[in-house]
Design a protein around this nucleic acid. Structure first.
Lengths: 110, 110
DNA sequence: TCAATAGTTCAACAGATTTTGAACTAAGGA
DNA sequence: TCCTTAGTTCAAAATCTGTTGAACTATTGA
Protein backbone atom coordinates (compact mmCIF):
# COMPACT_ATOMS: atom_id res chain seq x y z
CA UNK A 1 0.00 0.00 0.00
CA UNK A 2 1.63 3.20 -1.11
CA UNK A 3 0.61 6.71 -1.98
CA UNK A 4 0.88 8.18 -5.49
CA UNK A 5 4.05 10.12 -6.26
CA UNK A 6 5.00 11.78 -9.55
CA UNK A 7 8.07 10.37 -11.25
CA UNK A 8 11.06 12.70 -11.40
CA UNK A 9 10.36 13.83 -14.97
CA UNK A 10 6.87 14.91 -14.03
CA UNK A 11 8.05 17.33 -11.37
CA UNK A 12 7.23 20.79 -12.70
CA UNK A 13 9.11 23.94 -11.78
CA UNK A 14 6.14 26.32 -11.66
CA UNK A 15 4.29 23.83 -9.51
CA UNK A 16 7.21 23.31 -7.14
CA UNK A 17 7.56 27.07 -6.72
CA UNK A 18 3.82 27.56 -6.23
CA UNK A 19 3.66 24.79 -3.64
CA UNK A 20 6.65 26.19 -1.76
CA UNK A 21 5.19 29.68 -1.93
CA UNK A 22 3.27 29.01 1.24
CA UNK A 23 4.45 29.61 4.79
CA UNK A 24 3.24 26.32 6.15
CA UNK A 25 4.71 24.16 3.42
CA UNK A 26 7.96 26.07 3.42
CA UNK A 27 8.20 25.52 7.15
CA UNK A 28 7.61 21.79 6.69
CA UNK A 29 10.36 21.60 4.08
CA UNK A 30 12.70 23.62 6.28
CA UNK A 31 12.04 21.26 9.13
CA UNK A 32 12.60 18.19 6.97
CA UNK A 33 15.87 19.69 5.74
CA UNK A 34 17.10 20.16 9.28
CA UNK A 35 16.36 16.56 10.11
CA UNK A 36 17.38 14.84 6.93
CA UNK A 37 17.94 11.14 7.43
CA UNK A 38 15.45 11.00 10.30
CA UNK A 39 12.03 9.67 9.31
CA UNK A 40 9.33 12.21 10.07
CA UNK A 41 5.72 11.44 10.75
CA UNK A 42 2.91 13.94 10.27
CA UNK A 43 2.47 14.71 13.92
CA UNK A 44 5.90 16.39 14.00
CA UNK A 45 4.17 19.23 12.22
CA UNK A 46 1.08 19.66 14.38
CA UNK A 47 2.63 22.92 15.55
CA UNK A 48 2.03 24.24 12.04
CA UNK A 49 -1.69 23.58 11.81
CA UNK A 50 -4.59 21.22 12.44
CA UNK A 51 -4.39 17.54 11.58
CA UNK A 52 -6.74 17.99 8.63
CA UNK A 53 -4.91 20.99 7.35
CA UNK A 54 -1.54 19.26 7.57
CA UNK A 55 -2.92 16.33 5.67
CA UNK A 56 -3.81 18.78 2.94
CA UNK A 57 -0.42 20.50 2.86
CA UNK A 58 1.53 17.25 3.04
CA UNK A 59 -0.48 15.90 0.12
CA UNK A 60 0.38 19.02 -1.89
CA UNK A 61 4.07 18.53 -1.17
CA UNK A 62 3.90 14.87 -2.15
CA UNK A 63 1.90 15.52 -5.32
CA UNK A 64 4.36 18.21 -6.38
CA UNK A 65 7.21 15.72 -6.02
CA UNK A 66 8.87 17.60 -3.19
CA UNK A 67 8.44 14.95 -0.54
CA UNK A 68 8.17 11.20 -0.44
CA UNK A 69 5.61 9.61 1.88
CA UNK A 70 5.96 5.99 2.92
CA UNK A 71 3.22 4.21 4.78
CA UNK A 72 4.38 2.51 7.96
CA UNK A 73 1.59 1.07 10.04
CA UNK A 74 -0.73 3.90 10.96
CA UNK A 75 2.03 6.42 10.40
CA UNK A 76 3.48 8.05 7.33
CA UNK A 77 7.20 8.55 7.03
CA UNK A 78 7.94 11.75 5.18
CA UNK A 79 11.21 12.73 3.57
CA UNK A 80 12.55 15.26 1.07
CA UNK A 81 13.07 13.99 -2.47
CA UNK A 82 16.41 15.68 -2.48
CA UNK A 83 18.03 13.43 -5.09
CA UNK A 84 15.21 13.88 -7.62
CA UNK A 85 14.94 17.61 -7.01
CA UNK A 86 18.68 18.12 -7.24
CA UNK A 87 18.85 16.24 -10.51
CA UNK A 88 15.89 18.06 -11.97
CA UNK A 89 16.57 21.58 -10.65
CA UNK A 90 20.21 21.78 -9.53
CA UNK A 91 20.81 24.14 -6.64
CA UNK A 92 17.18 25.07 -6.21
CA UNK A 93 16.37 23.16 -3.06
CA UNK A 94 19.58 24.18 -1.33
CA UNK A 95 19.09 27.84 -2.04
CA UNK A 96 15.50 27.69 -0.81
CA UNK A 97 16.42 25.85 2.34
CA UNK A 98 19.21 28.30 3.08
CA UNK A 99 16.90 31.23 2.47
CA UNK A 100 14.11 29.69 4.55
CA UNK A 101 16.35 29.55 7.57
CA UNK A 102 14.57 32.30 9.42
CA UNK A 103 10.97 32.00 8.45
CA UNK A 104 8.58 32.69 11.34
CA UNK A 105 6.75 29.37 11.59
CA UNK A 106 9.99 27.45 11.68
CA UNK A 107 11.23 29.49 14.63
CA UNK A 108 8.53 27.88 16.73
CA UNK A 109 10.06 24.46 16.48
CA UNK A 110 13.63 25.45 17.18
CA UNK B 1 7.62 59.85 -10.88
CA UNK B 2 8.35 56.30 -9.86
CA UNK B 3 6.47 53.19 -8.92
CA UNK B 4 6.57 51.63 -5.45
CA UNK B 5 9.18 48.92 -4.89
CA UNK B 6 9.92 47.03 -1.68
CA UNK B 7 13.36 47.60 -0.21
CA UNK B 8 15.66 44.58 -0.28
CA UNK B 9 14.94 43.60 3.34
CA UNK B 10 11.24 43.47 2.66
CA UNK B 11 11.56 40.88 -0.08
CA UNK B 12 9.96 37.74 1.32
CA UNK B 13 10.90 34.24 0.26
CA UNK B 14 7.42 32.70 0.38
CA UNK B 15 6.12 35.60 -1.65
CA UNK B 16 8.91 35.39 -4.23
CA UNK B 17 8.25 31.68 -4.65
CA UNK B 18 4.49 32.17 -4.88
CA UNK B 19 4.87 34.92 -7.46
CA UNK B 20 7.25 32.81 -9.54
CA UNK B 21 4.94 29.82 -9.24
CA UNK B 22 3.04 30.99 -12.28
CA UNK B 23 3.79 30.16 -15.92
CA UNK B 24 3.39 33.67 -17.20
CA UNK B 25 5.54 35.35 -14.57
CA UNK B 26 8.18 32.66 -14.80
CA UNK B 27 8.30 33.20 -18.55
CA UNK B 28 8.73 36.95 -18.05
CA UNK B 29 11.60 36.38 -15.63
CA UNK B 30 13.18 33.86 -18.00
CA UNK B 31 12.96 36.36 -20.81
CA UNK B 32 14.44 39.15 -18.68
CA UNK B 33 17.28 36.85 -17.68
CA UNK B 34 18.11 36.14 -21.31
CA UNK B 35 18.24 39.80 -22.11
CA UNK B 36 19.89 41.17 -19.02
CA UNK B 37 21.34 44.62 -19.59
CA UNK B 38 18.78 45.43 -22.25
CA UNK B 39 15.90 47.58 -21.03
CA UNK B 40 12.60 45.82 -21.58
CA UNK B 41 9.27 47.53 -21.99
CA UNK B 42 5.96 45.81 -21.31
CA UNK B 43 5.09 45.25 -24.93
CA UNK B 44 7.94 42.74 -25.23
CA UNK B 45 5.67 40.42 -23.32
CA UNK B 46 2.44 40.83 -25.26
CA UNK B 47 3.02 37.31 -26.56
CA UNK B 48 2.34 36.13 -23.00
CA UNK B 49 -1.06 37.75 -22.53
CA UNK B 50 -3.26 40.79 -22.96
CA UNK B 51 -2.09 44.29 -22.08
CA UNK B 52 -4.27 44.36 -18.97
CA UNK B 53 -3.15 40.97 -17.85
CA UNK B 54 0.52 41.80 -18.30
CA UNK B 55 0.07 44.94 -16.28
CA UNK B 56 -1.24 42.72 -13.50
CA UNK B 57 1.60 40.21 -13.68
CA UNK B 58 4.30 42.86 -13.99
CA UNK B 59 2.90 44.61 -10.93
CA UNK B 60 3.08 41.34 -8.98
CA UNK B 61 6.70 40.89 -9.96
CA UNK B 62 7.54 44.46 -8.99
CA UNK B 63 5.67 44.29 -5.68
CA UNK B 64 7.42 41.05 -4.79
CA UNK B 65 10.79 42.73 -5.36
CA UNK B 66 11.71 40.52 -8.29
CA UNK B 67 11.79 43.24 -10.92
CA UNK B 68 12.47 46.94 -11.01
CA UNK B 69 10.26 49.16 -13.14
CA UNK B 70 11.46 52.58 -14.21
CA UNK B 71 9.14 55.04 -15.85
CA UNK B 72 10.47 56.44 -19.11
CA UNK B 73 8.01 58.56 -20.98
CA UNK B 74 4.96 56.46 -21.71
CA UNK B 75 7.03 53.29 -21.39
CA UNK B 76 8.23 51.30 -18.44
CA UNK B 77 11.69 49.84 -18.39
CA UNK B 78 11.73 46.56 -16.59
CA UNK B 79 14.73 44.73 -15.24
CA UNK B 80 15.54 41.91 -12.83
CA UNK B 81 16.61 42.95 -9.33
CA UNK B 82 19.40 40.46 -9.55
CA UNK B 83 21.73 42.17 -7.09
CA UNK B 84 19.08 42.42 -4.36
CA UNK B 85 17.81 38.90 -4.93
CA UNK B 86 21.30 37.43 -4.97
CA UNK B 87 22.19 39.17 -1.74
CA UNK B 88 18.99 38.15 -0.05
CA UNK B 89 18.64 34.59 -1.40
CA UNK B 90 22.01 33.46 -2.80
CA UNK B 91 21.76 31.08 -5.70
CA UNK B 92 17.98 31.12 -5.85
CA UNK B 93 17.48 33.22 -8.95
CA UNK B 94 20.18 31.41 -10.90
CA UNK B 95 18.80 27.99 -10.13
CA UNK B 96 15.30 29.07 -11.09
CA UNK B 97 16.43 30.67 -14.32
CA UNK B 98 18.44 27.60 -15.24
CA UNK B 99 15.51 25.34 -14.45
CA UNK B 100 13.07 27.57 -16.34
CA UNK B 101 15.06 27.19 -19.51
CA UNK B 102 12.50 24.98 -21.21
CA UNK B 103 9.18 26.23 -19.99
CA UNK B 104 6.52 26.23 -22.71
CA UNK B 105 5.59 29.92 -22.85
CA UNK B 106 9.21 30.93 -23.17
CA UNK B 107 9.69 28.68 -26.19
CA UNK B 108 7.37 30.95 -28.12
CA UNK B 109 9.73 33.89 -27.98
CA UNK B 110 12.88 32.03 -28.93
C1' DT C 1 -3.86 71.25 -30.63
C1' DC C 2 -5.03 66.58 -31.87
C1' DA C 3 -4.36 61.90 -32.33
C1' DA C 4 -1.80 57.91 -31.32
C1' DT C 5 0.82 55.10 -28.15
C1' DA C 6 1.96 52.84 -23.60
C1' DG C 7 0.33 51.42 -19.86
C1' DT C 8 -2.93 51.62 -15.52
C1' DT C 9 -7.18 51.21 -12.89
C1' DC C 10 -11.60 49.47 -11.95
C1' DA C 11 -15.36 46.29 -11.31
C1' DA C 12 -16.86 41.89 -12.37
C1' DC C 13 -16.52 37.03 -12.95
C1' DA C 14 -14.74 32.32 -12.84
C1' DG C 15 -12.07 29.25 -10.79
C1' DA C 16 -8.65 27.74 -7.46
C1' DT C 17 -6.94 27.52 -2.75
C1' DT C 18 -7.07 27.25 2.17
C1' DT C 19 -9.35 26.11 6.29
C1' DT C 20 -12.69 23.80 9.09
C1' DG C 21 -15.34 20.01 11.51
C1' DA C 22 -17.50 15.67 11.23
C1' DA C 23 -17.21 11.16 9.79
C1' DC C 24 -14.27 7.78 8.31
C1' DT C 25 -10.37 3.82 7.68
C1' DA C 26 -6.75 1.07 9.16
C1' DA C 27 -3.22 -0.66 12.28
C1' DG C 28 -1.60 -1.66 16.97
C1' DG C 29 -1.82 -2.54 21.82
C1' DA C 30 -4.32 -4.04 26.07
C1' DT D 1 -12.29 -7.94 20.95
C1' DC D 2 -12.21 -3.12 22.03
C1' DC D 3 -9.97 1.09 22.36
C1' DT D 4 -6.60 4.25 20.92
C1' DT D 5 -3.66 6.35 17.68
C1' DA D 6 -2.54 8.23 13.02
C1' DG D 7 -4.05 10.00 9.34
C1' DT D 8 -7.62 10.56 5.30
C1' DT D 9 -11.83 12.02 3.00
C1' DC D 10 -15.67 14.88 2.29
C1' DA D 11 -18.51 18.92 1.86
C1' DA D 12 -18.99 23.63 3.05
C1' DA D 13 -17.35 28.22 3.68
C1' DA D 14 -14.16 31.89 3.18
C1' DT D 15 -10.74 33.84 0.72
C1' DC D 16 -7.52 34.67 -2.88
C1' DT D 17 -6.08 34.67 -7.95
C1' DG D 18 -6.12 35.29 -12.71
C1' DT D 19 -8.54 37.14 -16.59
C1' DT D 20 -11.44 40.27 -19.03
C1' DG D 21 -13.25 44.73 -21.20
C1' DA D 22 -14.21 49.45 -20.63
C1' DA D 23 -12.68 53.67 -19.22
C1' DC D 24 -8.89 56.14 -17.89
C1' DT D 25 -4.02 58.94 -17.58
C1' DA D 26 0.08 60.58 -19.41
C1' DT D 27 3.49 61.27 -22.89
C1' DT D 28 4.91 61.83 -27.60
C1' DG D 29 4.84 63.18 -32.39
C1' DA D 30 2.44 65.42 -36.29
Amino acid sequence: MSLPHPIADQISLPNVLAVLGDQTRLAIVGYLARHEGVAMSCRQFLEFGSKTNLSYHLAKLREAGITRTEVSGTSRLISLRRDDLDRRFPGLLDSIIKAAHDIPLLERLK
